[in-house]
Structure formats: C-alpha cells, structure tokens
C-alpha cells in the first residue's frame, strides 16, 4: 500500500487546519459582535444628540449660546459623535444652517483637531482634514487648504482643490485654476467642479485661462466657461474649436452649446465634416444653436457621415429595411 504522504504529517496538517478554522470563526464572531455593539452605541448617541444638533440649526439667536453650552458639557465620545453628525450634515446644508453647524463644530472642539490633522504625516489624515476644512471652514482654513493644494501627495491635493471650491477668494480661484494643469495630478473633473462651485467669482480667471499655454488648463476652462456663462468667453471658445488639442476642441464645443455664438458655426461645420467623435460633438453643438442661425449649417451637414448627421438630429436617408 502506498501511503502517499506520511500520515503523521497529514494529521498534523489537519489539526493545524482545524485550529486555523476555529480561529477564523472566532474572528468572524468577534468582528460582527463588536461592529453591532458600535452600531448600537452610535444609534443610542444619535437618538440623543442629533436632536440637539438640529435644534441648534433652527434655534433663535438668543437660544443658541445655551444649546452650545449644553454641548460643551458633554463627554469626549459624545463630542466625537456630534462632530461626525455635523460633518455629514454639512454635506447637504448651506447658508445660515451651515453656519450654525459650524458653530456647533467649534463648540465641541472639532476645529483644532482638524487644523492639527492638516499637518499629520499620514496622507489619508491630511486628505480627511482637507475635506473637513472645506466643510467646516474654521479660521485659517483657506491658508491651510492652499498649502494642502500643493501637498506632495496627489490624493491630498485632489481633496484640497475640491474643498477650495467653497471659497470665493481670488487666491482660491487661482489655486483651483492651476490644478487644471495637465501635470497637476488632480483630476480635471475635480478642479473644474470646484471652479463651478466658486461661480461668478471664478469668471474672470476662467476667461484668462482660455488663453493659457497649458492644454489642461485651456480644456478645463473651456469646459466650465459655458456652464458659468462667462462674459466675453464666446469669442475665445470659437478660437478653441480649432485648438491643436482634441480634448480642448471637444470642451469648447460643449461649452458653446450653452453659450451660443453665431461666428462658431463656420468652424463647427468644418469640425463636423471631419467626422468621428469631434464631428459628432460639433454636430450636437450646431443642433443646440438658435434655430434662426443653424439652418445653413445643418444643410451643410447633409454630406457628413451618418453618426454626425444623427448627432445633429438629421433624419435617415433611407428607411429601415
């Protein structure tokens, strides 16, 4: 008989496997039990403290100090829970209610923690701090966020740039615009979204950015110019329809859908007849132009490829079989 492998070794392996299995089962039970206990505790705190936070957001001015005093008197665990609640609520709240939430955050001592975390050696903690600085906006937040927007870690820079979207200061606008650069390490959509959040405060800088030598900055600026309805951007966008970079051309065409300029029709027809993705984008932009302008341009697209004709909303040449 062939024993294959020494039975003693197999027994030892089997016992080891059983022990590991038991260890894992124990881990599972401990993990689940402790998570459930944490959730219970969180629910219990939520039941008591969320109401207090909500009261603070709607209280009259003379009632607020008393409410904040009540919160200050709570213990550390309760402060942490209020901090988390405020942090989450600030995601969906603006205006006076947001200011009240920030006052609550200050009362439970959240701001100093966030300011400290902004200089933590862990990139994750710095990124978390950047997020919190954007929402809580404590004193000194802008300066810290500008620092974090130049952090060595792209992850931190990204969160900082997104957070800078809540600040309308020209320095913040400039930092966000610079983050549009090709080599910034910050996703273009993040920086462009932050510029949109800054709104009209960013308009002039966006108009200048349309002439920036960096293609990434031109692309981002072109993308938001139409959405922000930047005054005087139309002519620049027409020029960018023939930019040397395809992505800039596409962004300019999309913006012209919202910021129509009659002079754009010539270059757009040219792009549309070239076909492909660029042609389809140009055709969509032509179709979005005021009906009084676009007739001749649409007729010119009669000889364009079918995908372009479809994007322009032109009917099929032949019926389906």
């Amino acid at each position: 008989m062939n024993p294959l492998v020494a039975p003693e070794l197999l027994w030892a392996l089997l016992i080891a496997a059983l022990l590991v299995t038991l260890g894992m089962l124990g881990t599972l039970v401990v993990q689940r039990s402790s998570r459930r206990a944490r959730e219970r505790r969180r629910r219990e705190l939520d039941g008591r403290l969320r109401r207090l936070v909500l009261e603070a957001t709607i209280a009259d001015d003379d009632e607020l100090p008393a409410l904040l005093d009540r919160m200050r008197a709570l213990d550390r665990g309760e402060h942490a829970h209020i901090g988390r609640t405020v942090f989450m609520m600030l995601q969906d709240v603006t205006g006076e209610a947001a200011d009240r939430l920030r006052a609550v955050a200050a009362a439970v001592g959240l701001a100093p923690l966030v300011l400290d975390a902004a200089r933590h050696r862990s990139a994750v903690r710095r990124a978390d701090a950047a997020e919190a600085l954007g929402r809580l906006a404590p004193e000194g937040a802008l300066e810290l966020l500008l620092e974090l927007a130049d952090d060595r870690e792209p992850e931190v820079r990204t969160v900082a740039v997104r957070a800078l979207g809540s600040f309308e200061d020209p320095i913040a606008v400039d930092a966000v615009t610079r983050a549009l650069a090709t080599e910034s390490g910050v996703p273009s959509t993040v920086a462009a979204t932050a510029l949109l959040q800054q709104g009209s405060a960013a308009s002039e800088r966006v108009r200048q950015a349309l002439r920036d030598p960096d293609a990434g900055i031109r692309r981002g600026a072109a993308r938001v110019a139409g959405l922000l309805q930047v005054p005087g951007a139309g002519e620049e966008l027409v020029r960018l329809v023939q930019d040397e970079h395809e992505s800039v051309r596409l962004a300019a065409m999309r913006s012209l859908e919202r910021l129509p300029v009659r002079d754009a029709l010539g270059p757009l027809v040219e792009q549309a007849l070239a076909g492909g993705t660029r042609g389809e984008a140009a055709a969509r932009t032509i179709a979005a132009m005021p009906s009084a302008w676009r007739g001749e341009a649409l007729r010119a697209l009669d000889r364009a490829e079918p995908g372009v004709r479809r994007a322009a909303g032109l009917p099929r040449r032949e019926a389906l079989a």
Binding site: P3, P7, W11
Partner: peptide
C-alpha cells in the same frame, strides 16, 4: 487496495480543508 484508506482520507481532508 493500492492506497492506504486512512492516508487517502486524510489527504482529501487536508486538500479540501485548505
């Protein structure tokens, strides 16, 4: 009878156990 039944069973248990 070409293989030891206990060893074969143990081998299967260890393989599937892993």
């Amino acid at each position: 009878g070409a293989v030891d039944p206990v060893a074969a069973l143990l081998l299967l248990l260890v393989s599937y156990g892993y």
